[in-house]
Simulated assay, not measured.
Amino acid sequence: MRFLHTSDWHLGRLFHGIHLTSDQAHVLDQFLALVRESKPDGIIIAGDIYDRAVPPIEAVELLNQLISQILVDYKVPTIMIAGNHDSAERLGFGSRLLAAQGLYVAGALRREIEPIILYDEHGPVYFAPLTYGEPAFVRERLSCPDVSNHEQAIEAMVQHVIRKIPNKARSVAIAHAFIAGSLESESERPLSIGGSSMVKGAVFQPFCYTALGHLHNSQQAGNPSIHYSGSLLKYSFAEAFQRKGIHLIEMDKVGGITVERISLSPRRDVRCIKGYFKDILNHSIDQGNQQDYVSVTLLDEMPILDAMGKLREKYPNVLQIESPRFLKKGVLSGLPRDHRKLSEKELFAAFYHQMTGENMTQEQQMHLVDVIETVYREEREAIL
């Protein structure tokens, strides 16, 4: 069986105030061309289809157009699960009707997790759609009172679905999770503020292949059969040196796999340029595309009048300027590193210490975590 594995499209994403829908459409056209050329038996989209619970109209239209072409023109069955950025209920609307057309959507977790079965010349392959679910929701929905963290939640879902897959059958897990030891990026929203969000790769041992979403860096997650496809585009300057693309998976008749990473070419790359202001302006240190999304780190010690305006004459899409002299110390006194790379919990703790002269108590920290996680939940299900 041949299938494509992709994830973390984040349709409707804003990047430093710029709508990326046209950039996403550009690479998704290449994805459609890959579908046409490779003729896969199926497509997996492992969560975070949208960037937020209520996506903009343009993002919904883009997904509608893309999926329609895949199903109607190319007739390729497609499986997608909800990620932590998606509204599971909205994404899963009409899923039973859509399944009849070849689109299998795992939105909100159901009390029974049913494998999706696709066929090739060697017989069936069972796909386990382990949609994203917070531990408390998994505990209630699957009646597992001992589930208290993300690893236990994934384990509970695996145990529920694996009993419906015949012994020694070829199988694929689809999950949105953070595998311990994997490389993360600053553009990924944490799955958990207070508890542990990490999951051991051994949880997916029963499956021939595990298609993961959540982390934006394309990578193997410990075991050769567990992979993150990575995000569709670079969604932060921390991802500037990552390669984005799609995984093409070949599975033989006994479940052995080969993974081919296929790169996509963005309309505009995300790049970081470092040097002195004069050298950057005359392009003596950079020969890249001037239309790329650019972050500039200036080495000049003296202030430069209207640096952004002057740089945009050469690089219209300069989105960020940094200067080491401003990053030697955090904005909040006492912070050991760049405040933009701190979590909400760390930032508030530093603010609290600056305002009161005292450290937060354990009880206060637990209350803060509850508040932050409540905000995340409400944001996912917000109605605008």
Rank of each mutant, 00 (worst) to 15 (best):
M1W: 04
H10P: 11
H10F: 06
R13P: 08
L14A: 08
I18A: 09
I18H: 12
H19G: 09
S22F: 03
V27E: 05
L28R: 02
D29E: 15
F31K: 00
L32D: 11
L32M: 10
S38R: 10
I43M: 06
I43R: 02
I45D: 10
Y50M: 09
V54W: 13
V60F: 07
E61I: 08
L63P: 10
L71P: 10
V72D: 13
D73I: 05
K75D: 14
K75I: 05
N84A: 05
S95W: 13
R96C: 08
L97G: 12
A99D: 14
A99F: 05
Q101S: 14
R110Y: 08
R111D: 15
R111S: 15
P115F: 01
L118F: 12
E121D: 15
E121S: 14
P129I: 00
L130Q: 02
P135C: 02
P135G: 04
A136C: 09
V138M: 07
V138K: 06
V138D: 11
E140D: 14
L142W: 03
L142H: 03
V147P: 11
N149M: 09
V158E: 11
V161E: 07
S171G: 11
V172A: 05
V172S: 06
A173H: 03
A177M: 08
F178P: 07
A180Q: 15
E188T: 04
P190E: 07
L191C: 04
S192V: 07
S192M: 12
S197H: 03
S197W: 01
M198V: 13
G201N: 02
L212K: 04
L212M: 07
N217A: 14
P224M: 03
S229I: 02
S231A: 10
K234T: 01
K234R: 09
A238W: 06
E239D: 12
I246E: 12
L248I: 12
L248M: 13
D252Y: 00
G255M: 01
G256R: 13
R261Q: 14
S263R: 13
S263Q: 14
S263F: 13
S263P: 09
S265E: 14
C272A: 10
I273Q: 00
F277V: 02
F277T: 00
N282F: 00
S284A: 07
Q291T: 01
Q291A: 05
Y293F: 15
P303N: 02
M308C: 04
R312P: 05
R312T: 00
R312V: 00
K314H: 14
K314W: 11
V318F: 00
V318A: 01
I321M: 03
S323Q: 15
P324H: 04
F326Y: 15
G330Q: 04
L335T: 15
L335R: 08
P336R: 14
R337C: 12
K341P: 06
F348G: 03
F348N: 01
A349Y: 01
F351V: 08
H353F: 12
T356D: 09
T361I: 03
T361S: 15
T361M: 05
E363Q: 13
Q365W: 07
M366H: 14
V369S: 12
D370H: 13
E373F: 00
Y376I: 10
R377I: 09
A382C: 10
A382T: 12
